[in-house]
Design a protein around this nucleic acid. Structure first.
Length: 833
RNA sequence: GCCGCCGUGGUGAAAUUGGUAUACACGAGGGACUUAAAAUCCCUUGGGAGCAAUCCCGUGUCGGUUCGAGUCCGACCGGCGGCACCA
């Protein structure tokens, strides 16, 4: 009777049949309800597929197959994010063209993915390095440029000395290059930036998050990254230094100000000095002759420091006095102006009012340089009267030594603040801002941590930025009818390191004519970052071969927004932020129809990381990498799929276990075995089991709780022995089909069906059949379970309590009449004495 | 330092709105089949006491709320992820 399950043969057979019959192809105009289920597309690496890829792909595949069975038309595409550094670095090493290695890697990974039996519509595949695709990536850039949202700047940027390219803020992790881990330095070269901080977008990027069904952690990450702070901008009048001490004094007109940003205007009376960042424009203007040497030296040192050195928290504060003073507008007191690298030039106004009594950084600086510390906020140290008392002083955020030895950074009662004394600091904040506004020396202000998005890379393997530099006309966009601006071939891929890409060496290509005046001009030689292609790819899936627009708005309307987006959490502030911004922009210019809304991904699920068997992150150097191909060869695609779903909750990190896989393989063989002993007239299992399982799996697929779906199926199969009722088994394999599509299809066909199970309807369940005829009650005495009783479902409360009371074990523990009886229907009876 | 998430058997993990903690699977131990092994099937498997019925303890630690807490609240300990002089 034991027949062997040949997974290789079965899987190959059905994959070929699905492809031949276009089972998963979806037409353009969904007639019925539609859904868009999207995976984050992979980078085609030479290492091929990682076991982490099939985790997300299996989840989205189960969900897609389930929705189809429920009668929904599902767009479920796949493609490749094909521009990027590894292919280029390989080219540098071997002289092989990146296009060639990329193509080989794509072909390999596509085969690996196809072996897993996912229900992708491969006719919609997009590849970001294909000129027919990046024509539209370039088109989007030109629209940004035309709307003033892409601009050139030569401010210092993050620079990776190993990859020899600029990096966006989001690509710098702990001061190191996201790709290679090399410490990032600063470099001043001309760069393209995209204005993601534009007032038209930043608040929408922030508030749009509230409308999204995304993991809270990802939304929090984005909120923190955007980093909105409310406060005030306050103007401090610069005291005109005596002419004999500053030869630049003529530059100072009658009244000149330094504007600072603060979130704590309520501490203004405690501002005893000011600090400018070393790069601040006014530094040279205000510095006295006497201090000039010291200041220049400090500026030079600061400029030479790397970001890591400058932001090292452990390091002592440094800074120098400029010799100049300003007037604190609150109390007209004269305060010294210093420069220090703990003040960043790129945030706020690049200048601060220092309140050493109520800011730890200012406090440390003031202690070191003996600057005055004036307390202006008194902590509300009175503990709220509570009965019973709740926690210690520490529990209320207070330390006994807060006032005496360190600085209080919380709210409290204002003091040493003139007419504001005694006010609550929260209230005082508003009052001070209002008064400053009246005097014209301050206003409410909002600042963000988010910086504009560095968009040029000094590398070869990316989309050329479609701009021409003309002496007469400035930066001119390549006319749209000349797109795509194809990436030319080069001899050497090595980045120059000078801030130019290898494209700069091709004079034929670089030298061109200005599209506006026809005069001689030069092409932009930088390329776009990898994020450029992934910013909009899901739009292209809706209309992948369109040659006249990025996608037909009617087709976008049919599918967008994405109903379910599945991928890793590592893209929280990279792809997922950039993509939202670009989508909002396309929405604003009408490339995305208004009807679909301005958020691209309605629901987001993050798969948890799959760790190595040692509990460590999988990596080649640790030697703990599992190759999905090996698992598919040995156990089959269905086993890999189900194992990855069975490992644990979808969003949790979990370690791989080679031993654990055999449990799934045994389950597959068990089901396969049962397939050979079904009989139309065999006794069916209990209705509660059958209908309860259908209900449970239906609900859990919708909640992405696939691990418990599989244990539900196992429980059901454990109930079988001997011949199994055929129609019951058919329901079982329909529920199994999203998880193990090959096995389910093979069994379906062996049972005499010539249809595809993937096109069959999802089983329905009957609520009435899930109702138990008998209920088991837990009987507790004082909350401890002492016995259980099983009564007919119709038994009422009094009846159940009576039976419970009569139990010997209950009597033993009860000792007399219960004071109180708790009855929870269908659950328990609790006697309290 | 700040923000977020998480601590349940030997292991991966289950557990509607608070309601019989440890489902399902792995591993381990025992048994059946076999000349033997593998495979398969059956039984046992949180800790402790007891011949047993049964009892006590038990979801990182301590406390609280409640008839009842893995679940809610507070403090602490440990781990993971993110941010990091952002004024």
């Amino acid at each position: 009777m034991a027949r062997e399950y040949n997974h290789q043969e079965v899987e190959r057979k059905w994959q070929a049949a699905w492809e031949r019959d276009g089972v998963y192809h979806v037409s353009d105009s969904p007639a019925s309800a539609s859904a868009y289920v999207l995976d984050m597309f992979p980078y085609p690496s030479a290492q091929g597929l990682h076991v982490g890829h099939p985790e997300g792909y299996t989840a989205s595949d189960i969900y897609s197959r389930y929705l189809r069975a429920r009668g929904t038309t599902v767009l479920h595409p796949m493609g490749f994010d094909a521009f990027g550094l590894p292919a280029e670095n390989y080219a540098i090493k071997t002289g092989t063209h990146p296009a060639k290695t990329t193509q080989e890697n794509i072909d390999n990974m596509r085969q690996q993915i196809k072996r897993l039996g996912f229900s992708y519509d491969w006719e919609r595949e997009v590849i970001t390095s294909d000129p027919r695709y990046y024509k539209w990536t370039q088109w989007i850039f030109i629209q940004l440029f035309k709307h003033g949202l892409a601009y050139e700047s030569d401010a210092p940027i993050n620079w990776c000395p190993k990859d020899k390219t600029g990096l966006a803020n989001e690509e710098v992790i702990d001061g190191k290059c996201e790709r290679c881990g090399t410490p990032v330095t600063k470099k001043q070269i001309k760069q393209w930036l995209v204005k993601i901080t534009d007032a038209k977008y930043i608040e929408r990027l922030l508030h749009g998050l509230d409308t999204l069904d995304w993991p809270e952690s990802i939304k929090t990450l984005q909120r923190n990254w955007i980093g909105r702070s409310e406060g005030a901008e306050i103007k401090f009048e610069i005291l005109n230094p005596k002419s004999e001490t500053n030869s630049n004094s003529k530059a100072i007109n009658s009244k000149q100000y330094i504007t600072v940003f603060t979130t704590r205007p309520d501490t203004l009376f405690g501002a005893t000095y000011m600090v400018l960042s070393p790069e601040h424009q006014l530094v040279d203007v205000i510095t006295t002759d006497k201090q000039k040497k010291t200041v220049d030296k400090y500026k030079k040192e600061a400029a030479a420091k790397s970001d890591l050195e400058r932001t090292d928290l452990a390091k002592e504060k440094t800074g120098v006095f400029t010799g100049a003073y300003a007037i604190n507008p609150a109390n007209e007191k004269k305060v010294p102006i210093w420069i220090a690298d703990y003040v960043l030039s790129s945030y706020g106004t690049g200048a601060i009012m220092a309140v050493p009594a109520h800011d730890e950084r200012d406090h440390a600086f003031a202690e070191k340089f003996k600057l005055p510390i004036v307390q202006v906020i008194k902590p509300a140290r009175v503990m709220p009267a509570m009965n019973p008392p709740m926690g210690s002083a520490a529990a209320w955020g207070m330390g006994d030594s807060d006032l005496e030895y360190t600085c209080w950074t919380g709210d409290g009662q204002m003091m040493n603040s003139g007419k504001y004394d005694g006010l609550d600091s929260v209230e005082g904040k508003e009052k001070i801002i209002a008064d400053l506004e009246k005097k014209g020396v301050g206003r409410k202000a909002v600042n963000y941590k988010l910086r504009d998005w560095l968009f040029s890379r000094q590398r070869y393997w990316g989309e050329p930025i479609p701009i021409v530099h003309c002496e007469k006309c400035g930066n001119v966009a390549v006319p749209e009818d000349q797109l795509p601006l194809e990436l030319p071939n080069v001899e050497k891929y090595e980045p120059t390191g000078t801030g130019e890409s290898p494209l700069a060496a091709i004079s034929d290509w670089v030298n061109t004519t200005c599209p506006e005046c026809g005069g001689p001009a030069k092409r932009e030689t930088n390329t776009m970052p990898q994020w450029a292609g992934s910013n909009w790819y899901w739009l292209r899936y809706c209309d992948p071969r369109n040659n006249t627009q990025l996608a037909d708005p009617e087709k976008l309307k049919a599918w967008l927004p994405v109903d379910m987006y599945v991928g890793g959490a590592e893209h929280a502030v990279l792809h997922l932020l950039y993509a939202r911004f670009i989508y909002m922009f396309l929405y604003d210019i009408g490339a995305v129809p208004q009807e679909v809304g301005e958020e691209p991904f309605a629901v987001l699920k993050n798969q948890g990381l799959i760790m190595g068997e040692d509990g460590q992150k999988m990596s080649k150097s640790r030697g703990n990498v599992i190759n999905p191909d090996d698992v598919v060869d040995k156990y089959g695609a269905d086993v890999l799929r189900m194992y990855e779903m069975f490992m644990g909750p979808f969003e949790d990190a979990k370690p791989w276990s080679t031993q654990g896989i055999v449990g799934i393989r045994r389950f597959v063989e068990k089901v396969w075995d049962v397939g050979a002993r079904t009989a139309p007239d065999a006794a069916a299992s209990d209705d509660v089991l059958v209908h309860g399982t259908i209900k449970s799996i239906t609900e859990k697929i919708e909640q992405f709780r696939f691990n418990t779906c599989i244990s539900d199926l196992m429980k059901w199969s454990n109930a079988w022995s001997g011949p199994v009722n055929q129609s019951e088994f058919e329901i079982f394999i329909m529920l199994l089909a999203p998880f193990a599509p090959h096995l389910a299809q093979e069994l379906w066909s062996q049972l005499g069906h010539d249809s595809y199970i993937a096109q069959e309807q999802w089983p329905a369940y009957d609520e009435f059949k899930i109702v138990e005829t008998e209920i088991t009650y837990a009987i507790q005495v004082n909350g401890k379970v002492r016995d259980t009783i099983t009564v007919p479902a119709a038994t009422d409360e009094q009846g159940t309590i009576q039976i419970a009371l009569q139990q010997e074990k209950v009597q033993k523990h009860l000792k007399g009449e219960p004071k109180k009886t708790i009855f929870v229907k269908d659950k328990l009876v609790n006697f309290v004495t």
